[in-house]
């Protein structure tokens, strides 16, 4: 059922449009990759430089829209939970067929690639001799392949959501009743929390002293541990319910759409942290800014999460 909701139509329409724009960019990018030589003064190189303006213009805008489309995707999936029997929130809809979970992972990965491209593009334009042009277009090629794959998956996924087969809702996917502890490395909740705050501190230190490899490691770990900390600890305080463990319900209106802020800051913080490490060899002001942004987003993330817990404690005098 592709006519599931207005949001699905809009989403697919916008995605198709973006893909055709990227295709247009691809048409201009290929000769640039093949013949780019900044030192050359031939008319061909001159024409290529002009074409490069168009290509990066299109890619930049398209990718910017692509970023905006991820939260919209989450919103759309969440809306579909009304129509899929058994689904309480996006978790059930994502589990409606085999594509869902993989697709979400792919989308997040693409987002990281998109972010890297935008930063690379910026660095490239800032330098007088466009040193990264070939690199950024090669990155674009990879991104293009991924995005085309993603669009195909989107179509497959959305058209094979059945509105008659019941799915399991988030409480049974993430619920406490599942066998064994869902938290990785067999950590207890307390240990998970300690690790979470330690990692956050490590991220801050890495950002402060611009230590690339620590930043890379700590931010990647923070995303991983942060995910579990939110689902199995902070989420309980957001839902004010000691039994509700779900990464998606917090995207809903009942919880003030706070999920978008939480997951947004976590992913952004992680992204900037990792990007800063990757760009560290290139030096320059961009890296400093990236460290700062990473620290800012991580701090926001930790603040939002912790505020929920503290607020609950101050209002009720107990922990959940």
């Amino acid at each position: 059922m592709i006519f599931l909701s207005n949001a699905v139509i809009v989403f697919l329409l916008v995605e198709a449009l973006l893909l055709s724009l990227l295709l247009l960019a691809l048409y201009h990018v290929i000769p640039i990759i093949r013949h780019w030589d900044f030192a050359d003064t031939s008319p061909r190189q001159y024409a290529l430089e002009k074409r490069s303006y168009l290509a990066q213009l299109i890619i930049f805008f398209t990718l910017a829209f692509k970023i905006a489309l991820l939260p919209y995707f989450a919103y759309m999936i969440d809306g579909l939970s009304l129509m899929v029997p058994g689904a309480m929130c996006a978790a059930g809809v994502l589990g409606a067929n085999d594509y869902g979970a993989f697709l979400l992972g792919l989308k997040v990965a693409i987002l990281f690639g998109v972010g890297l491209w935008i930063i690379l593009n910026r660095r490239d334009l800032q330098a007088s001799d466009y040193p990264y042009t070939r690199l950024k277009y090669l990155l674009f090629l990879a991104l293009f392949a991924l995005i085309a794959f993603e669009s195909a998956l989107d179509w497959l996924y959305l058209s094979s959501i059945a509105t008659t087969t019941p799915v399991s809702c988030c409480s049974s996917i993430y619920g406490a009743s599942t066998l064994g502890s869902p938290i990785p490395f067999g950590l207890s909740k307390e240990e998970l929390l300690i690790l979470f705050y330690l990692l956050y501190a490590l991220c801050l230190v890495a950002a402060l002293y611009s230590i690339g490899w620590i930043s890379l490691f700590a931010n990647a770990a923070l995303i991983y541990i942060g995910y579990y900390a939110v689902v199995y600890f902070f989420g309980l305080y957001i839902y004010e319910l000691p039994t509700h463990q779900c990464p998606f319900c917090m995207l809903q209106r009942e919880y003030g759409y706070v999920g978008y802020a939480i997951w947004g800051t976590l992913l952004l913080g992680g992204f900037f942290g990792i990007a800063s490490a990757l760009f560290a060899p290139l030096h320059g002001s961009t890296t400093r800014a990236l460290y700062r942004l990473s620290a800012l987003c991580n701090t926001l993330f930790v603040l939002i999460c912790s505020t929920y817990v503290l607020r609950y404690y101050f209002l009720n005098g107990v922990w959940l």
Partner: peptide, 13 residues
């Protein structure tokens, strides 16, 4: 819900 969405989606298409 489906009926409404169907009408909406038809219009959008």
């Amino acid at each position: 819900e489906r009926l409404y969405n169907y009408k909406g989606a038809l219009f959008l298409s």
